[in-house]
Amino acid sequence: MSIKLEHVNYIYSPETAYEIHALRDVNLEIGQGEFIGLIGHTGSGKSTLVQHLNGLVKATDGHVYFHGEDIYAHGYDMKKLRSRVGLVFQYPEHQLFEVDVLSDVCFGPKNQGLSREEAEERAKEALQMVGLSEEFYKQSPFELSGGQKRRAAIAGVLAMEPEVLILDEPTAGLDPKGRDEILDQISALHREKKITIVLVSHSMEDVAKYVGRIVVMNQGEVMYDDTPREVFRHYKELEEVGLAAPQVTYMMHALKEKGFAVDEDATTIEEARDTILKSLRGRL
């Protein structure tokens, strides 16, 4: 497994009036090549948790291991860790600063010590992956549309060629088409490049379609950690903490109640279609 969290606790502004216990005893293992969805309502600690994965914030208590090594150990190379665990922040377009898109994407690889040519090579590849064509290379990042900015920023992290890619709400504020495109591209990266992916989201709908495992956070604690199928079985409990299961789950349960022999654990539209067709055929 590549990343492991043990009894991680995190407190913001400890010992002041504004103390917030953002993570409580989080235990998590992220295996090589997994595609994980991290879900939770606003303020449940998702962003805080993912910042632990590349050592940006240090746990108040607990340990984080990367390939079995304790990242808080004295002399651990944090810079190396950060280039192997790429983190795309919430609203990453706010971090753009260079004069043109290509140089901005080169920032990461250059910090890794690559030469200009190598960095540009990687940048071009990354930009292609997120679907930004050559015409954008020399444009100012500030003149792009919101969705294009988002892509450029994601490319900035991809160009570092991390083995684990964490995306904090990469689709927040995008239109449905932009959202699907970005998620499809991420999913393609996972399939083709075998990158481990952690996708933070508060939309079950988004996540159900792509991920193999869902981690649900509630008030700083891990509430569920299982396959989408198993997690969505608890759709009533999820509702209680301000989340919702995908529409499909509700529909399946409604059909089941009406006496159709459908599999109520179907989580995607395709699965739903199959099970509905099967039950209808059974009736005929």
Binding site: L56, K79, F89, Q112, G156
Partner: peptide, 16 residues
């Protein structure tokens, strides 16, 4: 807060 966020984002991209 904004400074903190941007700083973290750039550190994640290897800034020093």
């Amino acid at each position: 807060e904004e400074t903190d966020k941007i700083m973290k984002a750039q550190i994640a991209r290897g800034a020093d």
